[in-house]
Design a protein around this nucleic acid. Structure first.
Lengths: 201, 201
DNA sequence: ATTACTTTTGACCACATGGTTAAATCATAC
DNA sequence: GTATGATTTAACCATGTGGTCAAAAGTAAT
């Protein structure tokens, strides 16, 4: 593959990513992706045989970037409290920079479950270790005892939800866009506070 | 409108609801809805002029059922602790009975924001009252001080997320379907615990 | 039974969609 | 510069889509 080719392919992926994220698999149009990439529609099929293939290329890349952050932090050499603090900060920041990805993944997850199953690639995210650490620190009286599958889901829920349900939340609390940005930022510390307080013995 | 007509219209709405929830607006096919309802495709257009209209009828009904529960509980004559307990129990139960609705709403919200805006119908959900109550109980030393817009979002996040991200969560924690059902049930008390512990002074 | 009206159907249409193909253009090596 | 292979394009195609329409079937009153 020559340089021109690689560049084109990259342009296509960028364009496809944008369109697919905005409209989902069914809502996206090959022509629109081509326009966005500034190329002929046939080129899409030249580089990626079909819409499915193109989507897969986009989705696998997007989905792949969702887990490493979690995994890395959870595996770090830190106490639970510090891990949580680190995780929330990193995760919310990541979401802040890619605010539409969670809704895209959730959408794909629920309307094309089969398509998603290809990428489950055993996330290698082993919650057993986290549970061990929790049990350990709990027996030392540092935190109260909780189940990892609840703690982790609780934290991730609170991080992600304001991004996927933004219009609702924004409306209920009567915020304009600027205020919502600030709200999202302020949630970092609020979530950390909320969780740590809850873990206090 | 005769009885036959009302019945047919109802059948259509039931079928449309099922298909739209499963596949979203773009993914749903009028023919499929007609088949599901056991009628001719033309009848869809006879009762609802267009796909948009049919979707609107479905969505407004589905969305409308999302808020009253929240509103009712929040307005009740209960202390914060009791309100939270009640709310989580009612809400998770509702979700349990309609597990695909949150993803459907989130999907619509994000891929067709304009379509959603029609239904914002000032939810009448006034968080000011909740904030007043929080401030009040906090000054009495019953709970610590928190902001309503964070507390409410935190609680709702933890209730909804496991339903919209089920495949991911189920995979990470290696649960089969039965185990996930139990997990969802067990979350009721876990969430309540988590929140109440966090509110302790 | 006839009339007037609503409900239901099958045939049809215009158009958008994903995809194909053959030719044109571009690079690169000789 | 010419031959060879990769890249790009324009013109098409088959099919699926939402939607229309006129006719058929059903319903109820007279």
């Amino acid at each position: 593959m020559t340089l021109a080719g690689e560049n084109t392919e990259h342009q296509i992926l960028i364009a496809a990513r944008e369109i697919f994220i905005a409209k989902g698999f069914e809502g996206a149009r090959m022509q629109e992706i081509a326009d966005q990439a500034g190329i002929n529609k046939s080129l899409l099929h030249y580089y990626f045989r079909s819409k499915e293939n193109l989507f897969d290329a986009v989705f696998s890349e997007v989905a792949a970037n969702l887990f490493p952050a979690i995994k890395e932090v959870l595996g770090a050499e830190l106490g639970i409290m510090e891990k949580i603090t680190f995780f929330v900060k990193i995760y919310v920041k990541t979401l802040y920079e890619n605010p539409f990805i969670p809704a895209f993944v959730i959408n794909t997850l629920n309307t094309n479950p089969d398509r998603f199953l290809k990428y489950i690639k055993k996330s290698n995210l082993n919650p057993m270790l986290l549970q061990k650490q929790i049990d350990n620190e709990a027996s030392q009286g540092l935190i109260r005892h909780v189940k990892a599958e609840h703690l982790l889901v609780n934290i991730i829920s609170m991080c992600i939800f304001p991004f996927v349900a933004r219009p609702i939340v924004q409306n209920i609390f009567n915020m304009n866009n600027e205020e919502y940005q600030k709200y999202l930022e302020s949630r970092q510390n609020e979530i950390i506070d909320f969780v740590l307080k809850s873990l206090t013995v």
